[in-house]
Design a binder for these strands. Structure first.
Lengths: 274, 274
DNA sequence: CATGCCAAG
DNA sequence: CTTGTCATG
């Protein structure tokens, strides 16, 4: 039994733009108790008034970690119905803690939720090196956190845009992407290592042996219409969370068939419906 | 008698944006024989397909002088029902000829039309120096051209965004703008000198002793709704043109009450209506 | 093909 | 406040 029933994660690709296109309707209508946001791309004082109003009206608490290093970039947040008991920005990595890529909140009932925006890479460049370095230190954090959860009986979910498609099931054209960042062998191995360590991929566990469900489609071409997507938005959970999971879904067109981001919300249910 | 009957000028503030907002409807509906455009902000190959289609459908010839020095900036053009007999980019000033600020076409029937986008200044800065320098050399060109028209019997109209409000009648808050570029004493003196030389302000001649009609309103605040505008878009004509002028108007909301630029089209009629 | 930044208007 | 650029995704 976990104190949170429904968790969602979505990369909004700019909360200001998304708020004009349907994010607010989605926030008003979702049954989630916790929503992790990525690519907020705004400081607290830059949030649209209508966004703040929607949060107030629907009883959301907002905690955010904007980028302090590049304005209008990155930025993660956690919305929760319950007020967080503790908030941590970053994961103790001086190289990335101020980049708006990770935020962790402790919620009432012994659940910790992390919102992650893992760097995008470009194979063979310094950007890939930075992504790999992030994975290394973040992997250390995840292992430490996992051990602490096991020791204390706490449960934890790390949700966000991982920028990694873990297997051939997780992107439409895997053959053509074997040399592209997001599907590089060492990236998949890193992700697989997390699962071997005990973390559960809550969406894949609910949908084994099927293509997708994808959560990101390029804005270019007709990628969305043709469902040429990638499953790169993941919720990883501790064993207690995994045991409680009873459903997972991607909302391809989240708000009255309108798209308001190049990513779609990914939602996991814990416990029985109702 | 002049071979052109209706001339318009309008600063479109980006032909790509304007084409999505109502410029095309206006072009399809206008009775003008010649339209001078400023701030086209596109190279020929960047023109929207729908813009080109509208020109084709309604029998417009297009001649343009994009900026070769800063992409996405400036750019003037002339649309004419008749095919131009000659086209000249710039006015023989190496400092500005490639900036997309002046284009001159000779039309059948002995009429020359110039489309002008005079630089915007900022009082007390190098930008003002550049504007003043442009005025000096452009003034020389206008005097030379005027003399040639007188000598040959040719008529001429120079239409565009002059970025100068000539008198206290030509902007809403003239007292507060005496130290601002566009209403500086030496700019007004320069403009007055053109009229003394024989050029006619075709719009002011049709509407003497009244405030406005303004042709530009800032996008900031509620300038348009409150008609806090400037008359900075002018058509200057040779005496034969001035004698033929029978009407002038600014189309505040040019296309079904929609605005598609911060400037409005300014139109002059030569000869009797019909 | 979107985002927000920026310089420019 | 809006344009088009640019770097980024």
């Amino acid at each position: 039994m976990v104190a949170v029933r429904v968790l969602s994660t979505v990369n909004v690709n700019g909360v200001r733009a998304a708020s004009t296109k349907g994010l607010l309707d989605w926030l008003a209508g979702t049954a989630a108790d916790v929503v992790c946001l990525q690519e907020v791309r705004a400081r607290p004082e830059e949030l649209p008034e209508a966004f703040r109003a929607t949060l107030d009206e629907h009883g959301w608490h907002l905690r955010m970690a904007p980028s302090e290093t590049a304005k209008g970039r990155n930025g993660v947040a956690v919305l929760s119905r319950a007020e967080p008991e503790a908030v941590r920005v970053g994961f103790g990595d001086p190289a990335t803690d101020l980049d708006g890529r990770y935020l962790e909140v402790d919620l009432p009932g012994g659940v910790t939720v992390g919102s992650l925006y893992l760097p995008k890479g470009l194979a063979g460049t310094e950007k890939q090196d930075a992504k790999d370095a992030f994975c290394k230190t973040f992997g250390d954090h995840l292992r430490t956190a996992f051990g602490r959860c096991v020791a204390t009986g706490r449960e934890m979910v790390v949700a966000g845009d991982w920028n990694i498609a873990p297997t051939e099931l997780d992107l439409r054209n895997w053959r053509g992407n074997r040399k592209n960042s997001g599907f590089l062998p060492h990236e998949r191995a890193w992700y697989a290592g997390l699962l071997e360590h005990g973390w559960a991929d809550l969406v894949r566990d609910q949908h084994p042996d099927v293509d997708g469900p994808y959560s990101w489609w390029s804005y270019r071409g007709r990628a969305f219409d043709n469902d040429v997507g990638w499953r790169i938005d993941h919720l990883l959970g501790t064993p207690g969370v995994a045991a409680a999971a009873t459903g997972a879904a991607v909302e391809r067109a989240p708000s009255h068939d309108r798209r308001w981001s190049d990513h779609a919300p990914v939602t996991v249910r814990l416990g029985e419906p109702g």
